[in-house]
Write a protein that binds this DNA or RNA. Structure first.
Lengths: 140, 140
DNA sequence: TCCCGATTTGAGAACCGTTCTCGAAAGGGT
DNA sequence: ACCCTTTCGAGAACGGTTCTCAAATCGGGA
């Protein structure tokens, strides 16, 4: 993969956020910086980064894909419903539990998805919503 | 909510499946039975059932919503990537763990999403895919 | 430095699941 | 039967994402 100007721009834009952002939000940020990158290229680059395991992807309740640069090790996310503030969490017990459940039912090649949603301390304090609005998601 | 012919049809169609199905698949089933129900009505009815907690919803990796009639108690799903065969599973330990993690970081109003994906015993045995194809989903 | 084939880009169209629109049809209470 | 409200449904609209394909760009070799 060639380190083109566009790909570097997308990668840097991702680093500018510490929470999950949509492809369009990243594109908007680049536009506001007069970084000329096509929307299709943003989508392509984010997909490539996701495939390479360099970013995590999750879907909000509208089905929109949200991206975030994360640590390489397996982990889950604790996400604020109001402002999107994200904490990476690990749960060896949960990993063991899912494997056990799968084995119990004879399922192989097991993977799992787990996200935790809530309201972060900052948003509990102030009732107005920070920056650009909620990255909401339904209960599970 | 009035028990109209259309709503009854959608509800019965749901019962005809024991795995997660899309609105369009349910609409197709109704059409093949010459049950005249508009697609919009199928969507509306499924949303209403989901809001009422009578069906569970999950999204496949394409962002498509899949519906399944489930038990009313809180549970998660063990889903076969190949045929969609679904087992409802409970994990009190996981419920406790998510609450603990959230509390630890000061998050309130906590909810979570957890799905487990794998290949079911039947699909491990026969390598051809049953019925109408995989309801696939990415790793978590 | 220039050339060349391969890769990448981007504007806009296409795609597709879902929701909206709004006039028509159906329900239910009286 | 009447009336008012809810529901229906065909098709348009919507919105995020992917595709198209000609033009731009890149990297390596001569």
């Amino acid at each position: 993969m060639r380190p083109t100007r566009q790909r570097r721009a997308v990668s840097e834009a991702l680093s500018a956020f510490d929470d999950f952002r949509s492809a369009q939000q990243i594109h908007d940020l680049l536009c506001s910086r007069d970084d000329k990158v096509g929307l299709a290229t943003v989508y392509r680059t984010l997909s490539a980064l996701a495939d390479a395991g360099e970013v995590d992807v999750l879907r909000n309740e509208d089905g929109e894909s949200l991206y975030r640069r994360c640590s390489a090790t397996h982990h889950h996310h604790l996400v604020c419903r109001a402002c999107g503030a994200t904490v990476e969490v690990e749960g060896p017990a949960v990993e063991r539990w899912t494997r056990a459940i799968a084995r119990e039912h004879g399922y192989a090649q097991v993977s799992h998805e787990l996200e935790i949603f809530g309201t972060c301390p900052a948003c509990l304090g102030s009732h107005d919503v920070p920056h650009d609005g909620p990255h909401d998601r339904a209960d599970g």
